[in-house]
Amino acid sequence: MSLRLPSEIVVERFLPTARAVLARALAERGLTQREIAAHLGVTQAAVSTYVSGDPDLEERFSGDERLRRTVERIADGFASGSTGGYEALAELLELIRAFEDRGPICAVHEEEMPALEGLGCDLCVRGADGAVLAEREALDAVRRASRRLADAPATIDHVPNVGTNVGTAVPDAEDATDVAAVPGRLQAVNSRVLVPADPEFGASQRVATTILAAMAVDPDVRGALNLATSDALLDAARDRGIDPLAFDAGYEDRDERLRERFRERGRPARVCYHEGAFGIEPVTYVLGETATEAAELAVELVEGASA
């Protein structure tokens, strides 16, 4: 693994870009290269490169409206004499903190340290506390589960018209905002299952409701996904020794009704389903300790149903 600190991104990529953009803004305001060099703490030769040459700018920084607004404020203050180095430093540090909070510094950091890619990392601003680690684990479980479903050719025949969603809750989840899922849901398009976006918390109400109902009976069952109900899918579950649990399709008080059905059984069902109702498509939920585990079972079922 390539170990890169975010501070390295700031020093090697952000700072040269910010200096170049600020140098050009100051030159536009009539400051000499010597005056610009004094403000930026660099040599006059460096300013010449910034202003007249072809400096290597990181476009994810230079093209960001927040950087442009910050540079304009600092440049106006330097030009008028109303801003000193302390104030300018405060402006830039505030911008860096914003860029480190799932912003462009994160994007560059992920590119240079691939182990961070797709984690929604906010390590710089929140630290390595247990809650953050639990959130990352939930997001990662949903990401892996989505890929597993998308990579299984048999999945496409079992994606409902409303789409398939995949979710994992953090421990002690209380509502849908504590459940990571896929915004927009997985969709069957042109013989492929597409994953439209990286997972986010609060992205699925229905899957979250099922997970929270399961957790009320067994806190270890924190993952679920939905597929289209079919006899073949339910038969595939029975072939694996799973007794699918039927429940009413209505949305009203669904969480309470599911909890009651799970309590009656003594544990959450690994497969539960409804046959639909007016305006409600028949859907089957596959559950597991995480979305990853639910996805492995789901792939077994769709492949069994297609055999």
Rank of each mutant, 00 (worst) to 15 (best):
M1L: 09
L3K: 14
L3C: 00
P6M: 12
T17N: 10
A18W: 10
L22R: 05
L26W: 10
R34T: 14
A37C: 05
L40I: 04
L40C: 08
G41D: 01
V42A: 04
T43P: 02
G53H: 11
G53D: 12
G53I: 03
D54Y: 10
P55F: 09
E59S: 14
S62M: 05
G63N: 06
G63R: 07
R68M: 11
R68W: 06
E72I: 01
G81N: 01
L89R: 10
L89S: 14
L89G: 12
A90N: 00
E94C: 06
L95G: 05
A98N: 06
A98K: 10
E100S: 15
G103K: 03
G103N: 02
I105N: 02
E110L: 11
E111T: 14
M113C: 09
G118V: 13
L119E: 15
C121W: 03
D122G: 13
C124R: 00
V125L: 13
A128G: 01
A128D: 15
D129T: 02
G130L: 15
A131K: 11
L139K: 15
R143W: 09
R144T: 14
S146H: 01
A150E: 07
D157V: 07
H158G: 09
H158V: 08
H158Q: 02
P160Q: 12
T164R: 08
N165E: 07
A169E: 03
P171H: 10
A173M: 11
A181E: 02
V182M: 04
R185Y: 02
N190D: 13
R192V: 01
V193H: 03
G202T: 11
A203D: 05
Q205A: 14
R206T: 06
I211G: 06
A213T: 11
A213I: 14
A216H: 03
A216P: 00
D218C: 10
P219K: 15
V221T: 12
V221F: 07
V221D: 02
L225T: 04
T229F: 00
R238D: 07
P244E: 03
A249C: 09
A249R: 03
E252Y: 08
D253C: 06
R257S: 05
R257V: 11
R257I: 08
R265M: 13
G266N: 07
P268G: 09
A269I: 10
C272F: 09
H274F: 03
A277V: 08
F278P: 00
F278S: 07
G288C: 08
A294C: 06
E296S: 13
L301D: 08
A305M: 07
